[in-house]
Design a protein around this nucleic acid. Structure first.
Lengths: 343, 343
DNA sequence: GAATTGTGAGCGCTCACAATT
DNA sequence: GAATTGTGAGCGCTCACAATT
């Protein structure tokens, strides 16, 4: 009857082991001051009954659930195939494993989940903290979580970053390094292709492009700056438009756009890197073949995830930003000394 | 001081609204027998304080958390890009929205998460139920959850299906229909390409292939059956091996393998569908181009997800299997009357 | 008497403190 | 007196029942 596993409680384990519930609790939570014989006896009972403490009771009294959530806005679910999310999830998962937390991904469908999922995520006694990626679809969500003073770390840079704890990468410095590399290769007419500036990372990378030109002694020529949607198609269009101004180098703000740009150059028989050198940004694992060959600014996405978990564990109260450095990875598209081939 | 949102409790909301905690609880849980004026007064206080009930306390007393988890074994995380998981997640998410549950995906890294994540998932007071997909990586997990009598629904067919509540698709009937279609087109030497039979769905689809031959009055010739890894490369190899026996039709047990098979036929200048008609299995949204063109047995993955949620909600005690029907989708690779073109 | 409200108990833990060795 | 154990209280809810209109 009462052998039903559902009925196991601290009290019952204690009775079976001949101790009080406190002693069992001490064994479970690894407190000192438990005699080794007693500990062994209790552990034996726990093992053979398969007892596991009730998580809700534990959470109620300790005010911690040990759960960390990644909120994933998913109007469409292409996100699921996005290598950025894949790498980020990987990093967060590692971070949670290190800190002994349980990690869960919460897909949130904005209109629909407003009534049940969001209130639950915000409430006490459910998740200890949430990680949210910046982006147009997350703005309202981030606002709501901040208003509720929910423990939250934002990955990336939302338009309204007031009072947020954030993890980001050094977008500006990364793009500056990319452009300085192009300058160092002797390129004189260096263009920029990126998303509209309401993508904050795009604006930052554009600023880095200008920094790089300035520090390399090149003049900024805004006709060499082309903004379009952050897709391969957008990159294709921007690159075609740019060709009229005869660039000999381009920094493209995302590898996805760079893929489109490379297609455009190939389509117009412009050789890469001989006639135009290309440096992208992102360097995600598992990109397409042309992304593998790309010279690009690599952002450490998995480390961003690990860092987000760490910040969530800190007893932060203030807004804080951690910006992780990027690294330039040399590929075939800026051909320093290698025999360049058209991609 | 006590205006800290963290300090909000039923008791406090009640005091602010001039009622008892029970009345507030009744308003929150939509019980009858609350006077409209009182309800309005309580709701006003809830709104303006932003009160949300503590989920842990609620779970402790009601023994339900409202959380449903999909356990995702992820030694590598290619799963993340897998269109099957994408469609399944979509369906589960819908099912949870309908039932008012919160849905979370739990990535589980077998060796590492054994100590923290699995015990937590199994414990009371955390998730109400879990959904697990069958597959070599899930076998131990499924065993552990079953031993703990955890509410669980398995998607697919694990080798050991004893005592499980499962949702599956009609693999055998689907493959039989595929082969009958090929027979109906007048094909006489119909082959089969599939994964090794320790993939249970592969064994079922192979059985369906034999059913289809039998009901179509064709003899089974085991030289026309080729098993290899369930990848495009495996399909390529199997198709090459099969060519020696001059098939005029092939049923391939997964669209991914079919993609490889089509490449093999193209490579050997065997025209599809003129010389060989091909029928796949899966029909996942967002497959590659050649998968889009494929004639294939479509499994209703999203509905599988919705069904899994429904079964989880039922007060099932017994093992039970729900098998959802598949549909044959005619594409270019078995060219009935269309001018066929090599793919 | 039916509709409406409040009181008491208890869910299964953790923690402070008291009591024991 | 230090190490070890047990007792009491309480976390914030929901539910049964009693008390009120």
């Amino acid at each position: 009857m009462t052998d039903d596993p559902e009925d196991l409680t601290l009290e019952r384990i204690g009775r079976l082991a001949g101790v009080s519930r406190s002693t069992v609790s001490r064994v479970l939570n690894d407190h000192r001051h438990v005699r080794p014989e007693v500990r062994a006896r209790v552990e034996a009972v726990i093992d053979q009954t398969g007892y596991l403490p009730n998580q809700a009771a534990r959470a109620l009294v300790s005010n911690r659930t040990g759960l960390i959530g990644l909120v994933m806005p998913t109007d469409a679910d292409e996100l699921f195939g996005d290598p950025y999310y894949s790498a980020l999830v990987h990093g967060i998962h590692e971070g949670c494993a290190d800190s002994g937390s349980v990690f869960a991904i919460f897909p949130v469908d904005a209109p629909r989940d407003q009534t049940v999922v969001l209130p639950t995520l915000v409430a006490q006694g459910f998740v200890d903290g949430v990680i949210v990626t910046a982006g147009p679809r997350s703005d309202r969500l981030i606002g709501a979580l901040r208003d509720r003073r929910k423990r939250m770390v934002v990955v990336g840079h939302p338009a309204d970053d007031d009072g947020l704890v954030r993890v980001d990468v050094e977008n500006r410095a990364g793009s500056a390094a990319a452009v300085e590399h192009l300058v160092g290769l002797g390129r004189r007419r260096i263009g920029f292709i990126g998303p509209p500036t309401d993508f904050v990372f795009g604006a930052e990378r554009l600023a880095g492009y200008r920094d790089g030109l300035a520090s390399g002694g090149r003049r900024v020529d805004d006709r060499l700056v082309r903004l379009d949607e952050p897709t391969a198609e957008g990159g294709f269009r921007a690159a075609e438009a740019l060709l009229a101004w005869h660039p000999d180098g381009v920094h493209v703000a995302t590898d996805t756009m760079a893929e489109g740009a490379l297609r455009a150059f190939a389509h117009h028989d412009v050789r890469v890197p001989e006639e135009v050198a290309v440096v992208g940004f992102d360097g995600l694992p598992g990109g397409s073949l042309s992304q593998q060959l790309l010279t690009t600014v690599v952002q450490p996405v998995a480390e961003v995830g690990r860092t987000a978990v760490r910040l969530l564990g800190d007893d932060h109260v203030d807004a804080r930003v951690v910006a992780l450095p990027t690294t330039l990875r040399i590929g075939a598209t800026c051909g320093s000394g290698l025999a360049g081939r058209s991609t």
